[in-house]
Every structure is written in C-alpha cells, then in structure tokens.
C-alpha cells in the first residue's frame, strides 16, 4: 500500500492563504490513507476540527472509497457537489495520486494534505516498511526474495559495500546489511553459488510517467 504522513500544517495553511480560502471541503481516502491512519474518517474529522478551530469553515467532507480511482472519485464529488461548490478549496487527505484524481474531478483549487512517502509493507498494525520501489526489472528471483534495490540504502545490486561491519549496514547501523541477508538466505536455501555478479540495472523500465493500458491489444503485454 501507499504510505503517507501528515503534511506540515503551516504549509497547508500557507497554501490556503495563497488563494485567500476561507471555506474548505475535505476529502479522505478509504484505502491506503485509512490503513496508514492519515486520511480515514477519523483523521478527516480531526482535520475538520483543527481547521474550524483555526477559523476556517468546513463546507463538507467525504472519504472516497478509492480516491485514486477516477470514476469513483467523480461519483463521490458529484454526491457532494453543493458542499464543494460552497468551498474555496479542497484539501485532500490521500496520496499524491489521490490528490491528482480529485483535482481532475472537481473544478476548485485542490491542495495536498499529506506527504506520500513510499510503497509500504504492513509489518503489523501501524508499522510500515519500504521493500519495493517498483523498478520494473525485478531481481527478487536472484536475491532470495530480498530486494537490494530498496533495502540497501545505496541500492547496490552487488554487495556488501566496504562499510558493512559485523553484518550491519553502514548507512542504517541498526539494520542488517541487505546483502548479508541475501547471501545468508541463498545459502540456507542451498542456492549459495547462484548469485554471480549482477549486471547493471535497466533503468529505462522506470522512466516516468509509467502507464499501463489493459484495453490496448486486448489485455496489454501479458503473455
């Protein structure tokens, strides 16, 4: 899921002040931002209270089912048409994809209420870790299911680097070196010799902006 964190409050109020906004409509997200406790119903209502305390009028609020879904978000905005029209701005408590979807669905100025930080694994309730950067050229087959692109702070395919000490990472010293973990797991699985020198990565698979259209060629690139 997409991990978000609250955006610096003064940046939000500066944004609202920049267009002299007094009335605000709030939009949350029922998916990732709800799980991340940043843009679910609870957080939307908390934000509403804070805004009102600061003298803003909250004209209405909604929590879109999947705010990054354009069709759903258009539908949701239509339901709240009057409240949105009454507002000067829409503040979105969702990831950047959700913010842009809302911006496409409504005509009012839209501002981000969260910072989008990474694609996260939910380790347990409230604990998230970045394990994949969606590089489009996955090497997990060779690295025993541990991603060096993401979990090695330098993103090295071949490691450990010269800073590894006692199995620990040089950059994040409280963590194990990703390459030590990879080598150990490969060994445990009897695949010790399978990881030679990995060649330079193909970064063209990650060129921006990514786009997939399953309607093309009757189902996209799948075999």
């Amino acid at each position: 899921m997409i991990i978000t964190r609250p955006r610096d409050w003064t940046r939000i109020t500066d944004n609202l002040a920049s267009i002299d906004a007094k009335g605000v409509f709030l939009m949350g997200c029922g998916q990732c931002a709800t799980v991340a406790h940043t843009g679910g119903e609870k957080e939307v209502l908390q934000t509403k209270a804070v805004l009102e305390q600061a003298g803003y009028t909250v004209t209405g609020w909604a929590v879109g089912e999947v705010t990054c879904h354009l069709g759903g978000t258009k539908l949701e905005s239509r339901k709240h048409h009057e409240d949105i029209e009454a507002a000067d701005a829409v503040l979105v408590l969702a990831c950047g994809a959700g913010v842009q979807t809302v911006a496409d669905a409504v005509s009012k100025p839209v501002f981000p209420g969260l910072e989008s930080v990474f694609l996260g694994n939910v380790i347990r309730h409230g604990v998230f870790e970045e394990r994949c950067q969606m590089c489009g050229d996955c090497v997990l087959d060779l690295t025993a299911g541990i991603c060096p692109v993401t979990t090695c702070p330098k993103g090295l395919l071949n490691g450990p680097c010269g800073g590894m000490w006692d199995g620990k990472c040089e950059v994040l010293q409280d963590r194990e070196c990703a390459h030590v973990r990879i080598q150990r797991r490969l060994k445990e699985q009897g695949r010790g010799g399978t990881l030679g020198v990995l060649p330079p990565k193909d970064f063209s698979t990650k060129l921006k902006p990514g786009a997939v259209n399953l309607r093309d060629k009757k189902g996209g690139d799948r075999p």
């Binding site: 702070p153 090295l156 490691g159 040089e170 950059v171 990995l198 060649p199 990565k201």
Partner: peptide, 20 residues
C-alpha cells in the same frame, strides 16, 4: 552514502556499483 556527507540532501546516484 550522501547522508553521511556535507550534502545530505543530494541524490545518491549509484547507477552502478563498484563491481559493475
């Protein structure tokens, strides 16, 4: 890593590693 240096906000390139 740039995080340990004087430009901690720099993007570490690491397009290649030393072996490559």
């Amino acid at each position: 890593d740039p995080r340990s240096g004087d430009h901690p906000h720099a993007k570490g390139v690491f397009d290649l590693d030393s072996t490559q």
